[in-house]
Computed example of a mutant assay.
Amino acid sequence: MAAVPSAVLTTAGLIGGYSVARATGNRPLGGAVLAGFGAAAFETWRRGPGLGTALALTGVYVGAFGLSHPLAKRIGAWPAVLGVTAATAALAVAAERD
């Protein structure tokens, strides 16, 4: 069975985490979704490009989550989430191609 691309995992984590938190009103549940998919992406990167890349891209993933909050105040929640998700996914794709 083929591995799930990390860009799919980060997208599911960022969009899924926000969607779950918004739909349920339970921010910790959304955080659990974010963390679960982040852990899966980390493992994909660790097994592929290596530990250094995994650590760097996990930092990008967590940073994207953090950046989405102040960005949402300027452009709205969904545009912020979609923007940071697109940037994170693009970096994930680039890392897996190297």
Rank of each mutant, 00 (worst) to 15 (best):
M1S: 14
A2L: 15
A3N: 06
V4Y: 10
V4D: 10
P5K: 07
P5C: 06
S6P: 08
A7M: 04
A7I: 05
V8T: 15
V8R: 10
V8F: 14
L9K: 11
T10A: 04
T10L: 00
T10C: 09
T11H: 05
T11Y: 04
T11A: 06
A12M: 15
A12K: 10
G13V: 06
L14E: 10
G17M: 09
Y18G: 00
Y18D: 06
Y18T: 11
S19L: 12
S19C: 09
S19R: 07
V20G: 06
A21M: 07
A21F: 07
A21R: 09
R22G: 03
R22W: 05
R22A: 06
R22M: 09
R22D: 08
A23G: 10
T24G: 07
T24L: 08
T24M: 14
G25L: 04
G25Y: 02
N26P: 02
N26H: 13
N26F: 12
R27A: 10
R27D: 08
L29E: 10
G31K: 06
G31E: 03
A32M: 14
A32R: 01
V33Q: 09
L34P: 03
L34R: 12
A35I: 11
G36Q: 04
G36K: 04
G36P: 14
G38Y: 07
G38F: 11
A40R: 03
A41K: 00
A41M: 01
F42V: 03
F42D: 01
E43Q: 06
E43F: 12
E43G: 00
T44Y: 00
T44S: 03
R46Y: 08
R47T: 01
R47D: 02
R47M: 01
R47W: 00
P49L: 02
P49H: 00
P49F: 05
P49Y: 01
P49D: 12
G50L: 12
L51Y: 04
G52S: 15
G52F: 02
G52K: 13
G52D: 14
T53I: 14
T53C: 07
A54T: 00
A56M: 11
L57Q: 05
L57P: 11
L57Y: 07
T58P: 01
T58Q: 09
G59A: 05
V60C: 01
Y61L: 01
Y61D: 01
Y61N: 09
V62L: 12
A64S: 15
A64C: 04
A64Y: 05
F65N: 04
F65M: 01
F65E: 05
G66R: 01
S68E: 05
S68N: 06
H69M: 05
H69C: 02
P70Y: 10
L71M: 15
L71C: 12
K73T: 15
R74C: 02
I75Q: 08
I75L: 13
W78F: 14
P79V: 11
A80E: 08
A80C: 04
A80S: 14
V81M: 01
V81S: 10
T85L: 07
A87W: 08
A87I: 07
T88R: 07
T88M: 02
A90G: 14
A90Q: 10
A90V: 15
A90I: 12
A90C: 07
L91P: 00
A94C: 12
A94F: 09
A95R: 00
E96K: 06
E96H: 10
R97K: 11
D98M: 09
